[in-house]
Simulated scan of single mutants.
Amino acid sequence: MKSAKYLLAFIIIIKIDTSLSRVKVAVYYETMCPHSINFVRNKFHPYYKVLKDYIQVEWIPYGRSNHTRVNGKWQIQCKNGKDECKSNKFQVCALEEGRSQDKNVDFITCVLSLGYPGHTRGIEDCADRNSFDWAAIMECFENGRGDELMAKMGQKTRRLAPRLKQVPTIVYNDTFDGRLCDLALNDFVKTTCSMIIGQKPSIC
């Protein structure tokens, strides 16, 4: 009986340690940027399923945008125009729902795989396909909450040191390293595998 208790405790400890050892991967991107689209669609998403138990993914759809507060309201100007701002805001409102990492990844990939990622109907379809609450997303989009979330994305982007110069930018474990970013953009799997401590997925 005692040995069974010890075995259970051991299993729980191992599970906790594995969870804590996940590599954090932050993707700073612009929805309408061809380089961002290419990275998510062709270098990140095809390998996500084999890496997902080893990484914690954060999405920051802001890039080289600007935000200023005018008469108590946030004004957002995006590098690739108003439709990019619209799509970015829909995305942060969806992420605010707190769905699983898998759902968030599939939703973001779906949006960036649209023929035109700024098309509202297409974004709604991506939300529906991945079980997001479109009514809640629209409420967030229209009531000012989406602008607040975008401003937070901007603040996070501006805190990068050195400052963001290219899109997409990949940051591991909350510490920006330009060399690692360049390596990740070239070979995301190999670079991410190098960051995983201990047992690695088969693709490594």
Rank of each mutant, 00 (worst) to 15 (best):
L180W: 00
N186A: 11
R179I: 11
A136V: 10
G122F: 13
S131L: 11
E148M: 10
L183M: 12
Y28T: 00
F188K: 01
T68E: 12
F10H: 09
A136R: 09
G72F: 03
T191N: 01
C126K: 04
G98F: 02
W59A: 02
E97F: 02
A26Q: 01
G81W: 02
L95D: 01
M150Y: 15
S202W: 08
S19G: 12
F39A: 01
N66I: 11
A127L: 14
S19K: 14
V57F: 00
E148C: 13
S113E: 04
E58V: 12
Q77V: 11
E142N: 12
K86Q: 08
A9E: 07
L149T: 03
G198Y: 04
V105K: 00
E148K: 15
N173D: 10
I14H: 07
D106A: 13
V27Y: 00
R99F: 08
G118V: 12
A9D: 06
F188Y: 07
D177T: 15
C93A: 02
V27M: 02
R145N: 14
F141R: 05
K52G: 07
R64E: 10
C93T: 05
K86C: 11
I76K: 02
G198K: 07
V171H: 01
E84Q: 05
M153E: 05
V70F: 08
P34I: 08
M32F: 08
V171S: 00
G178E: 08
V27Q: 00
I12N: 05
T31M: 02
T68H: 14
K200G: 03
K190Y: 05
E96F: 10
K156L: 14
S3P: 12
E30Q: 07
N66L: 11
L51F: 03
G98P: 04
I137Y: 06
P168E: 06
K103F: 11
V40C: 00
S87G: 06
E84I: 06
F44G: 00
Y172W: 07
Q199T: 14
W134I: 13
Y28C: 00
G122D: 15
R159P: 10
G118P: 08
T68V: 15
L95Y: 04
G122A: 09
G198Q: 04
F44V: 01
R99Q: 10
N38G: 07
P201Q: 05
S113K: 13
F44Q: 01
A9T: 14
N80D: 08
K200H: 07
I203Q: 03
A127P: 03
P162A: 14
N143M: 10
G115W: 11
K15L: 12
K89G: 06
F44N: 00
I13K: 03
D106S: 15
I60A: 03
Q91C: 09
A161F: 14
K152V: 12
F176V: 09
R158N: 15
P34S: 07
G118Y: 02
V105P: 03
Y29E: 04
G115C: 12
F132L: 07
V25H: 00
W59E: 04
R179W: 15
T120A: 15
V171Q: 02
A151L: 09
K73T: 12
N143K: 04
G178C: 11
S87H: 02
Y29I: 13
D133P: 05
K165I: 14
